[in-house]
Simulated assay, not measured.
Amino acid sequence: MEDILRPIYQERASQSNTLGVLMVEKKQLSADLTDSFDVILLIIVKEAEQPLFIKHYTFKEKKAAMHVIDETLLKEWILLGSNRKIFEWLFHSQILFDRNDYLFNLKKELREFPFYGRKVKMGVEFAKLIRRFVNGKAMFESGHYLDAYNHVVHSLHHLARLAVIESGLHPELTVWNQVKQIEPEIYKLYEELVKSEETLEKRLELLFLASEFMIHSRTSIGAAHVLEVLEEREYWSINEMLNNKELVPYSVDLSVLLEYLIDKQLLDVVEVNTKGQGIFHRYYKVREKLS
């Protein structure tokens, strides 16, 4: 297989911009993880005009796909978990070319999952969890039970991923198999939601109560990264946060997370005068701990 595909990747491997080339074969993974292709060539480059460039090939009645990914996008996928397949590809791939051990070190880092990386990923998952939970509860209280159900399923998925990351593992595509071993209580909540014979309203009502406790118990670890960043200055505007490189990964979930942390008395609101009478700028600061 490698010999047949060598002409496709060899030219790119010779370019100084290329950091590494990986090959993933369908026989190593299920068909859905390779988008039904027999082989995936993953080429990581330092920078590119297009963050992601894909080409498809046919050979000997087989299909191949070449994905050229710039390093910034790859790191975003790894941090945010926005492309779950990338972990499977990196873990189950064969290295065809590796400049200065870039891929060797990347795979090593993924296996070891350094604590800082875990803390940021936990923060991002926690923010997504809070947004889904808050939106689901609002839908439930408005009587939109099917929409509430959709949000709750997603919130449980984020809670499951958070538990897996907390245990020091990367969440896989089959995250419920992982969480069944790691934290069966969360798996049981999910089962009760989808399998219970109670009415949908009753199922949601019970689940909101149980989830609230589980979310509350994870607030300290889920919010640790955000609070550490916010402690770096006296107070912040929302715009300053959104443009801070440490907080960029939280993006659209940040405002909902801030309101949750205010509710939990971990953040305080600071009002600063504007030119308009009776209207204030709204800033945020970490609440001082009582000694």
Rank of each mutant, 00 (worst) to 15 (best):
S196N: 12
E271D: 10
K202A: 10
D101Q: 11
L261V: 04
V269Q: 13
V269C: 08
Q50F: 06
L79A: 07
L73Y: 03
F115P: 07
I165N: 03
E240S: 12
L74E: 08
I86D: 12
K264S: 05
N239L: 11
P171R: 04
R282M: 07
V270W: 10
S93F: 12
E166Q: 15
I165P: 09
I262T: 12
I40C: 09
K275T: 09
V256L: 01
F87N: 10
A65Q: 09
D35I: 04
L42C: 10
A64N: 11
Q10D: 14
E61C: 09
Q277E: 13
S237N: 12
V134E: 15
P171C: 10
S196F: 11
T199I: 09
I221D: 00
D147A: 07
K26E: 14
N243T: 10
E197T: 14
V24G: 02
E191D: 06
L209E: 15
V286K: 07
I86T: 13
E166P: 04
V39F: 01
S30L: 09
V272K: 14
T174I: 02
V68N: 00
R132F: 13
L169S: 15
E192P: 04
E205C: 08
V124P: 04
V120T: 02
R84T: 15
E25I: 06
D98M: 12
Q265T: 04
E185I: 04
F37W: 01
I78F: 03
L74Y: 03
E61V: 06
K128H: 12
W236P: 04
R132E: 12
L193P: 02
S30M: 13
K137P: 09
K289E: 15
L227A: 07
D253L: 00
V21Y: 03
A48C: 02
Q94S: 15
K245A: 11
V24S: 03
L90T: 10
K60Y: 07
F87S: 11
H151P: 03
F126T: 10
R99I: 01
K264C: 04
R218V: 06
I165K: 11
N135Q: 13
